[in-house]
Design a protein around this nucleic acid. Structure first.
Lengths: 135, 135
DNA sequence: GTTGATGCAAAACTTTTGCAACACG
DNA sequence: CGTGTTGCAAAAGTTTTGCATCAAC
């Protein structure tokens, strides 16, 4: 655990729940705290923390890889991402209904599942209201 | 419908079911058929076909955006992707169990869902056998 | 003619890599 | 010392953009 590693992880701990930060964003947040690490170091350590299972890689199709703190016990804190197609905000949905689906897939496809990533695209409550008011 | 657009779409129609092609791959397949379109044209038209709902954008985290033919009726042909962490092969799993989950999310989160993307990471049958034999 | 699509090259962005310098046991 | 990490700059890879040209109606 180098100081760099420690501070990169601290960025995630300090960020609000459900933050999905890209390397560049972590780098910027570090600079705001006067930690002037190299960008390459940030990239290398995000990847490392991901391999250690401390961070989760997520991808919202905006051209950059993002990371989030992974729950200590994944079984207890499964969550899916709801992505608003209008305002691009990301919402979280806690759920463990996917267990059934995982079991079904394992049996039917003979595929051993160790992780999953689920994204729902649509329109959030605010954007729907706004659109309704505009009409 | 320009000739370029037509031939790009044809690439997907001719490709085997469940192909997930990147812009570069489409470009290469076109060249093999002696269609020498510009790479930028391929990019522009893949994006266009995606907006028209003819292609679906998918992302397997390999650093490039991929596209697949979207089913005419998405309700009839929902499928999820199983990604083998060892051999990186992509398998498809047909399923409509997610309807339940979508309904639940809509109610609980007040979020209108129009599309979803589900990826399961794990180990395919072949890789599990191979690993077993090696031990 | 006007509008939109193409092709090419350049530019923009994200991510990776090579390598010398550094830190730590 | 030796191993592993960092920082910097350069390189690599994907995607976007500007612009002149082309095609179609």
């Amino acid at each position: 655990m180098t100081p760099q590693r420690k501070e990169i992880l601290q960025i995630f701990v300090d960020s609000e729940d459900g933050s999905h930060l890209s390397a560049e964003e972590v780098y910027e947040l570090l600079r705001q705290k006067d930690f002037d690490f190299g960008l390459a170091t940030v990239y290398r350590n995000l990847e490392l923390l991901n391999e250690l299972g401390i961070l989760n890689k997520v991808d919202f199709g905006d051209g950059r890889t993002r990371y989030e703190l992974s729950a200590a016990n994944p079984q207890l804190h499964q969550h899916h991402h709801l992505i608003c197609l209008n305002c691009k905000k990301i919402f979280e949905f806690e759920d463990d209904l996917l267990d059934n689906l995982e079991n079904l897939i394992s049996k039917k496809s003979d595929f051993e599942i160790v992780n999953h990533e689920v994204k729902f695209f649509g329109y959030c409550s605010d954007c729907r209201k706004r659109r309704h008011n505009e009409n």
